[in-house]
Each structure stands twice: as C-alpha cells, then as structure tokens.
Amino acid sequence: MAYTPQFYPGSTSVGINRRKHMSGNVEKLRDIPEADVVAIMGHRAPGADYSSTHPPLKEMGEPDCPIRQAVEPTPGAAAGDRVRYSQWTDSMYFAPSIPYFRSYWGAINCKGCDPGTLSGRQIIEARERDIEKYTKTQYDSEMTDVALCSMRGCTVHGHSLRLEENGMQFDMLARTELGNDGNVLGVKDQVGIPLDKKVNLGKPMSEAEAKKRTTIFRFDGVPMSGTVGARKPDEAVEMTHHMWELRTKWGYRPE
C-alpha cells in the first residue's frame, strides 16, 4: 500500500486546513496573470530577462557527483538565476494562512526554496523563475485572501492591527485598495513602488468564508482548547504537549 504522509493532527476545521496547506492540496480560487504577479514582486519588469549569478549548469560542466546526478535541478537553478524573495503578510483576523503554514507549505512542496518564518511575515527565497511560480501558486490558491493577505517586502505591521473599515488589512504604504466594483486592486509592488497599471486581484473572501478557510485558532473562531465552560482540547494540543515533553525530557531521544 502506498504511504500517505500524515501532516497535522486534529479534527477541527483549522486542523483540516493546516493539513491541506502542508500537503499542498489547496484549492485554486483565482487565476492572476503571471505578468501581474511578476509586477507585484517587483524584481524584474514583466517580460524582461532573468538576471543570473552563474552560467546555465549545462554550460558549466559540473563535477562528477552522485548527488548532482540524483537530484534534478529546478528550472531556476539550471538556468543560473539570481535568488529572489517574496514576502507575505497575513492578517491575524482569520487570514487563510499564517507564517508557519506558508513555511510548511514551502518547505514540503517547493523544491529549492528557503522559507523564513517571522511573527508577522513569511518570506520565501528561491531562484527567480522558481519563486515566481511559487508566488503565483500562493496567490491563486486558497492560501491567500486578497483582502487579508498581501505581499509586503517591508512595513508589515498591518498583520496585527485591526482591519480597515472596508475589511482590508491595514497597510501604511497603501499597496492594495478596494475598487468600486468590489475587486481588490494591487497598486504598488512589494516595497511600495507604484505599478504602471493597477492589477486586479479579484474579489476578497466573505468573513464567513475566511473563517472557514483559516488556519488560525482563535477564541472567537475555532479555539484550540474549546470554549470556556466546555473545554475540549484539540488533538493538536495533545500533540504539542507530547512533542514538548519529548523534546524537553529526552531531547527527542526517548531510549
């Protein structure tokens, strides 16, 4: 029987969503053109050449190495692209993804990337054409709600602030805006440089849908340990306690 990896415990909707993010079986909700994703990332103009740090691997003549023969390079690595980044900020008000689960998604599902997890933002670094592909996957999937998540290379503090009146995540640099037709528009790139044309990112999720798709345990959504008066810890809590015990008492070596 084929082995199916088990990713995360718990039977709550949050546990199920966390499993989805880790396994990469995320639903595709929208299709943002690749050129628009590239424009928002801001590393190169859409259609421009990729800058490179070394010649393509085929031209370089690699040493005779069994690992290099066994591992197929990613398209970006094969072409010698520069390493670039994309950084996400997810609101604490029921954004579908959170830094840890973006990182799990990246580390498990994206080849040749380096995810970095911080309290309010999550960065993935990879070769340029690879990171563009990974960023588009994140933008298009249910990991992203265009109102509650946005790409921010700097000034990420909106994640922990209350939402704006129109339901958007607060952004000091105003990189996204809610259009009159209800669509969210990207008006600036990751770091706040205005784009040549506004990018239509589609409609935001409703509050109910965001709560349904979120990976955040919250007291006013799905609490990790049940509600007051009816405590029922999720299996995730048991697992965390178990991991903590193993790590603390035996350094993960219970022999």
């Binding site: 290379g153 700097c154 000034t155 000091m172 640099l173 105003a174 770091v191 706040g192 440089i193 205005p194």
Partner: peptide, 11 residues
C-alpha cells in the same frame, strides 16, 4: 515611504 528600497517615494 519611510524605509526600504522605495524610500522617499510619495504615498
């Protein structure tokens, strides 16, 4: 923009 690569860009 107060800092970052776009520092000084008007908002």
């Amino acid at each position: 923009v107060p800092y970052g690569p776009a520092k000084g860009t008007p908002i």
